[in-house]
Measured scan of single mutants.
Amino acid sequence: ELVLALYDYQEKSPREVTMKKGDILTLLNSTNKDWWKVEVNDRQGFVPASYVKKLD
């Protein structure tokens, strides 16, 4: 499943990933309501769920 980055996000820990507004990311896990695991540029990590939106 793919998600769209709604905002820029700068990683604050090694478990997170940086994304730019408009990026298309692969959603790996959305079981946590606050932090979703995504893959971007061959890196996996977490981003705030409120910063991304699922693409239909």
Rank of each mutant, 00 (worst) to 15 (best):
K20T: 09
E39S: 13
Y51M: 12
P14S: 12
L27V: 07
Q44Y: 07
I24P: 02
Y9R: 02
E1A: 13
Y7E: 10
V40I: 15
N41V: 11
K12C: 11
N29M: 09
Y51C: 09
Q44F: 07
E11H: 09
G45F: 09
A5K: 01
V17I: 14
L25R: 01
G22I: 01
D34K: 13
G22M: 03
Y7F: 14
Q10K: 13
Y51D: 03
D8F: 04
L4M: 14
K54Y: 09
R43V: 07
E11Y: 05
G22F: 05
L6F: 03
V47F: 00
V52S: 01
L28M: 08
G22E: 02
S13D: 11
K33C: 10
E11Q: 14
D42P: 06
V3K: 00
W36M: 04
K54P: 10
K53I: 15
V47E: 00
D56L: 11
D34R: 13
G45A: 03
Y9E: 00
A5M: 02
F46H: 05
E39M: 13
T18G: 08
T18P: 07
T18Q: 04
G22Y: 05
F46A: 02
S13A: 09
T18K: 04
D34W: 15
Y9G: 01
K37L: 15
S50G: 11
M19K: 00
Y51G: 05
V17K: 01
T18M: 04
W36L: 04
V40K: 15
V47M: 00
G22W: 07
N41H: 15
W36V: 07
L4F: 09
W35T: 02
Q44V: 14
E11V: 06
A5P: 00
D23V: 05
V3W: 10
L55C: 12
L4Q: 12
D56T: 12
L25N: 00
G45W: 04
R43D: 04
V47W: 00
Q44S: 12
K20H: 11
N32A: 09
K54G: 05
T18S: 15
L2Q: 10
K54D: 04
V47N: 00
T31G: 11
E39R: 13
S50F: 09
Y9N: 01
A49Q: 06
S30D: 15
G45I: 05
L4V: 15
L6D: 01
V47D: 02
R43W: 05
E1H: 13
S30T: 10
Q44R: 11
P14Q: 10
N32F: 09
L6M: 09
S50D: 08
D34I: 14
D8C: 06
K53H: 09
E39F: 09
D56A: 12
L2P: 06
Y9W: 11
V47A: 03
Y9C: 02
G45E: 01
L55E: 04
A49E: 04
R43K: 11
T26F: 13
K33H: 12
K54M: 11
I24G: 00
E39A: 13
V52Y: 01
D34C: 15
K53V: 15
V52C: 14
N29I: 08
K37Y: 15
W35R: 03
G22R: 03
R43Y: 04
N29T: 08
K21C: 09
S13T: 12
K53G: 09
K53L: 13
D56V: 12
W36A: 04
P48T: 01
Y9K: 01
N41A: 13
I24Y: 07
L27G: 00
E11C: 13
T18W: 05
Y51R: 06
V38R: 00
K37W: 14
S13H: 12
D42G: 15
V47I: 08
F46D: 04
P14K: 10
D8Y: 04
D42A: 11
W35H: 03
R15G: 14
K33I: 11
E11F: 06
M19D: 01
L27E: 00
K53S: 11
D42T: 10
K21T: 06
S50C: 14
F46W: 15
L28D: 01
L27Y: 02
Y51E: 02
P48K: 04
E39G: 11
I24E: 03
K21D: 02
L27S: 02
V38G: 01
R43I: 07
K33N: 12
S13W: 06
D56G: 13
L25A: 08
K12H: 09
K37C: 13
R15Y: 12
L25F: 07
S13E: 09
D8E: 05
P48E: 02
W35L: 03
I24S: 03
S30E: 13
A5R: 02
M19S: 00
T26L: 15
R15M: 13
D56C: 14
Y51L: 11
K21W: 03
E1M: 14
K37Q: 12
Q44K: 09
E16P: 05
E16M: 06
T31N: 12
R15K: 11
K37G: 05
Y7M: 11
F46R: 04
T26Q: 12
E16N: 06
A49R: 11
N29C: 12
A5I: 02
D56Y: 13
R43N: 06
W36Q: 01
T31F: 09
L6Q: 04
K20C: 11
A49C: 07
D8H: 06
Y9Q: 00
L55M: 10
K21P: 03
V3G: 14
D56I: 12
K33G: 10
A49M: 05
L27M: 04
N41K: 14
T26E: 08
L25Q: 00
S30I: 07
Q44L: 07
S50A: 13
D56E: 13
D42K: 12
E1F: 13
N41L: 13
E16H: 06
V52F: 06
T31R: 10
S30Q: 10
I24Q: 05
M19C: 06
S30V: 07
P14M: 09
Y7D: 07
L27T: 02
L2I: 09
V40S: 15
N29R: 07
E16A: 07
G45S: 02
